[in-house]
Every structure is written in C-alpha cells, then in structure tokens.
C-alpha cells in the first residue's frame, strides 16, 4: 500500500448462503486518493455488494479490504461508526428524512456524530450554497424536485468532509438535465480532493465524462479503463 492508495481490494470473495454463484469472485482493485471512478455493470454483477463491503454493511467471505488505511475486514463493531464517518454516501432513492426540512436533513449528519450546535449552524449554510439550495433550506423533501432532493442528499454526504464519496445510482431517478447537474456537482466535489466512486447505468454520462470505468459482470471485474467508456456487452 502506498500513501496515495485510498481503496484496496485484494482477492475479495463474497458468497451469500443459499446462493449458487458468488456475488464477488476474487476481486482485486486499487483506487488512488482523489480519483473519480465509475463502476458499471448489469444487475447481479456485484456492484451493490461491493458498495456494501466498502460501507462495512457486509464482510467478505475471504480477502482483504483496506479503505483509507483501515483494514475493514478486521474492524471491530464498536469502531464501525468512526470508520463510516470517513465515507459519504448517496443513494438512488435519496433517503431523506421526510418529516424534516432541508436544513435539518443536512444538519442531521452532523448532529448524529455529536458536532457542536454552533459548528452545525456555521457549516450547513455553506454546504447548501455549494449544492445550490441555500434559498430552499426551509423546504420539506416533498416540496423539492428529484434533482433538488438528490442535491440535499449530496450536501448531507459531504458536510462531514469525508475523504471518500460513494454514489449508488445517484441519477437513477432523475431526468437527463438533473442527472448532469448532479454529475457536475460530483465532479466539483472530486476536484476539491474527495475520492468519488459512482455506481451507474447511465451510458451517456459515463461515455461523456471520460473517467476511469470499472466494468463488472457476474461478480468479476471484466474491464478497468482509464478515461474509459460504457462497455455494452457488460
């Protein structure tokens, strides 16, 4: 491992009990600090399992996973919360708290890790400005468009300044215009130094942005291209 490595997977296997084929089959992967990586592949290719392993929602059947110098496999249960604070995460379905407004949804990410109230009041408006929602801080999620909701989710994911951002199908529920706005924001966050992993099916975006593309099929990495594109047969 070099000082520049952010995510390392070595010979990672993951099998679910009762399932025939393994979800991940001998995966090895290096992602450097500050990289922007697309992970593409069909349903059942192992993308979601990979994200869950990185978030330590699952542990691998075998192999090593090192994230930001932390051995994720050997991580003790009580240390998982601290580990997860180093990873921002965005989902296709936004996962916002419907009974709270934009400000409270973003502040929530700091409250649950015991950030002092004064700091929260200072941080939240800045992040909301970054995602272009400063004016809508009082709105409830149902009053926002899909794109705006995803921007709130992005603001929540980055407010604790994590070195890694995982985005699982962030544009899956958005129209092309909003999808591009979200991708531009992810690119901007990446330019600020955050390592960004985006799981997506969006061929147009992957082909247009010319970033590193890891293609998965049936639990195996079939392609890993620098400045790559969407491989159709995946």
């Amino acid at each position: 491992m070099t000082g520049n490595d952010m995510i390392i997977l070595e010979d990672v296997n993951k099998s679910y009990s009762g399932a025939g084929a393994p979800a991940l089959n001998n995966i090895s992967l290096h992602i450097e600090k500050g990289e922007f990586v697309f992970i593409v592949g069909d349903s059942g290719s192992g993308k979601s399992t990979l994200i869950k392993l990185l978030l330590r929602e699952l542990t691998p059947t075998s192999g090593r996973i090192i994230v930001n110098h932390t051995d994720v496999v050997k991580l003790k249960h009580r240390k998982i919360p601290k580990y997860r604070r180093g990873i921002g995460v965005v989902f296709q379905d936004f996962r916002l708290l419907k009974d709270r407004n934009v400000y409270e949804n973003v502040a929530f990410a700091q409250r649950v890790i015991s950030v002092p109230a004064r700091e929260i009041r200072r941080n939240v408006p800045g992040v909301l400005s970054l995602v272009g929602l400063a004016e809508k801080y009082k709105s409830r999620p149902k009053q926002l468009s899909g794109g705006e909701q995803q921007r709130v989710a992005l603001a929540r994911a980055i407010i604790n300044d994590p070195p890694i951002l995982l985005a699982d199908e962030p544009t899956g529920n958005l129209d092309p215009k909003n999808s591009w706005e979200i991708m531009k924001l992810l690119e901007q966050i990446n330019k600020n130094g955050t390592t960004v992993l985006v799981v997506t099916h969006n061929r147009e975006i992957v082909n247009e942005m010319r970033k590193r593309v890891i293609t998965m099929k049936k639990g195996v990495i079939v392609s890993d291209q620098k400045k790559g594109g969407y491989i159709d047969e995946a």
Binding site: L55, E57, R78, P81, K82, Y83, R84, R85, V89, R95, L97, F108, A109, V112, I113, S114, R156, N160
Partner: peptide
C-alpha cells in the same frame, strides 16, 4: 427503520441510535 439506517451509515454510534 429508514432513519436508523441513515444514522448508521452516516456513522452514528450505537448510543446515539
């Protein structure tokens, strides 16, 4: 459950949850 899962993913400790 959804709120709790968000809390856990954000890094809330068992005590906070």
């Amino acid at each position: 459950r959804e709120e709790i899962s968000i809390m856990k993913l954000i890094g809330a400790t068992d005590f906070v949850v």
